[in-house]
Amino acid sequence: MVMSVLSSFIFPPPSSLVVSGLTVISFLILVTSFLSEIRGKHLNYSKFWNANPSAQKQIKLPSKAGMLLLYTPAFLAGLASFWIFPPQSLRSIILQSAVTFHFFKRVFEVLFIHKYSGGMTLESAIPITLSYFLSAATMTYAQHLTNGLPEPPMNLLYPGIVVFVIAIIGNFYHHYLLSNLRGEGEKEYKIPKGGLFGLVICPHYLFEITVFYGIFFISQTLYAFSFAIGTNLYLLGRSYSTRKWYVSKFEDFPKSVKAVIPFVF
């Protein structure tokens, strides 16, 4: 039953054992990260860079260098995919472009938009970097393997483009709002305002989740589907922890503001 439903909007699973294995592994890693966030064992970056006692003994990276480390390999993987897997269809061209542009945007934001405080531990940076790099490489490779296969009965390519564009703009806009919270030289955290911050404390996560669903709609591969769901779960956990952190730090934090899904969660 489940497979018949999936087959209506997903290409047949690839014959590649590598892609199949990475599909399962990346999903399980993201689910494990979701459970860790809910339990209070955070990846050590942003507000939580020193949340765990062991973080004090780990190698610390400056936030900007750490964030560049997270996104640059994935951006380069997307860029290289145009040479390694020359696009053979409109879907593959758009998928490779979407993956590359998403990580290019993140690199751009690290260099020119974000303002930093705290740091990032190398122990957290390495698995996140590998996750993003492997996701970019595997997503483009999985798409390459669909060339010549019959299209899924339900074509989500064009809705996917719309979802992706809206999500990219929404994510960038809320990152921009966050960057404007602090004046020159300021490092303290404040309660974000503007945009969807009046409804949820992590609208940037909401739009990042939507970015990967947009990429899945464009791709319609099993790997992109599993990565979108896994990312969704992880960022639900991260946003839950973020809201909990704000509630503990600010007595005037609005109780009506949810974590990531307006009015719901």
Rank of each mutant, 00 (worst) to 15 (best):
S8E: 14
S16F: 12
V18Q: 05
L22A: 08
I25G: 00
I25A: 14
I25P: 03
L28W: 12
I29F: 14
L35T: 14
R39V: 03
K41Q: 12
N44C: 04
Y45M: 08
S46M: 11
K47G: 02
W49I: 01
N50F: 01
A51W: 05
N52R: 14
S54F: 06
K57N: 15
I59G: 05
A65W: 10
M67T: 08
T72H: 08
P73Y: 12
S81W: 09
F82G: 11
I84Q: 12
P86K: 07
P87E: 04
S89H: 09
S97A: 14
A98G: 03
V110W: 07
I113Q: 07
H114D: 14
S117N: 08
S117T: 07
S124E: 06
L130G: 13
S135D: 08
T138M: 15
Q143N: 15
T146E: 12
G148E: 08
G148R: 05
G148C: 07
P150T: 10
N155H: 07
G160E: 01
V163Y: 00
F164E: 00
V165M: 04
A167C: 04
I169V: 15
H174P: 04
L178F: 06
E184S: 04
K187D: 06
Y189L: 07
P192R: 05
K193W: 08
G194N: 04
F197W: 09
L199S: 10
T210V: 02
F225C: 00
S226Y: 14
N232M: 13
R238Y: 02
T242G: 08
W245N: 12
V247D: 08
D252P: 00
S256L: 06
P262T: 05
